[in-house]
């Protein structure tokens, strides 16, 4: 019992890091994903090709490798001391984790948003055009709200995957929940901490599901 309590308090701090990493990744990757979708559909072949290549790399290589590259890259490629890349008290490894997750998830979100945008009937654009809406009004008032509803189930999938993927940050030694769980587990030579961590992840995703279902329900007032 005492063991469990100490595990819970130790995992608690790691869990906080996990939540922060999760939230920051969403905050950056969703708007970035919209840009990726736009770039992927660009009429400019250079922009389109570059974005396509970026998506291909992000989806085609392991996220763990990408994290390692973002973290160690500045040193091995440019000889920059990683210590110097931190912002104030924040260690660069935490920043690298947020960057790595964000650019990876932006690629996936980008493709989801693109599928949503391209599934919109042409008639919606035409109706908006003849009513005199500008391009940005059409996008933000007519298209995007409907796209959000369409992509919500796919986005929920990604968000749930992200909760679990945050554990990959242990590869660059970010002290998030999974890293802590592994340390405790090694010190106590017991898997209890890993089980508790698993329960935390599940609980987290359970809440994510409830929230996403709530949003979906809120948007079900129309078809």
């Amino acid at each position: 019992m005492k063991d469990l309590l100490s595990i819970l308090t130790q995992l608690g701090t790691g869990f906080l890091t996990t939540i922060i990493l999760f939230c920051l990744t969403l905050i950056f990757s969703i708007p970035l994903g919209l840009l990726v979708a736009k770039g992927r559909m660009s009429k400019n072949i250079v922009i389109r090709s570059v974005v396509r290549f970026y998506i291909s790399i992000m989806r085609g290589t392991p996220l763990m490798l990408q994290l390692l590259l973002v973290y160690f890259g500045p040193f091995y490629l440019f000889g920059i001391k990683l210590r110097d890349l931190g912002i104030g008290k924040i260690d660069y490894r935490d920043i690298a984790a947020v960057i790595g997750f964000s650019i990876n998830y932006a690629a996936y979100f980008g493709e989801i948003f693109r599928s949503g945008i391209q599934s919109m009937p042409k008639g919606q654009y035409e109706a908006a055009a003849v009513l005199g809406f500008s391009k940005s009004q059409t996008y933000f008032r007519i298209i995007l709200p409907q796209v959000i509803k369409r992509v919500l189930p796919a986005v929920t999938n990604e968000v749930i995957t992200l909760v679990k993927d945050t554990s990959l940050a242990y590869s660059i030694a970010v002290v998030e929940m999974f890293t802590v769980a592994k340390q405790i587990s090694a010190a106590q030579t017991s898997v209890l901490a890993l089980f508790v961590a698993g329960a935390f992840y599940y609980l987290f995703n359970f809440i994510v599901e409830i929230i996403m279902n709530g949003i979906e329900k809120k948007m079900s007032y129309y078809q």
Binding site: P121, G123, Q124, A127, A128, I142, P145, Q146, K149, Y222
Partner: peptide
């Protein structure tokens, strides 16, 4: 022909 109302 297809109305094209804004469903939302």
């Amino acid at each position: 022909q297809g109305f094209n109302l804004f469903p939302h």
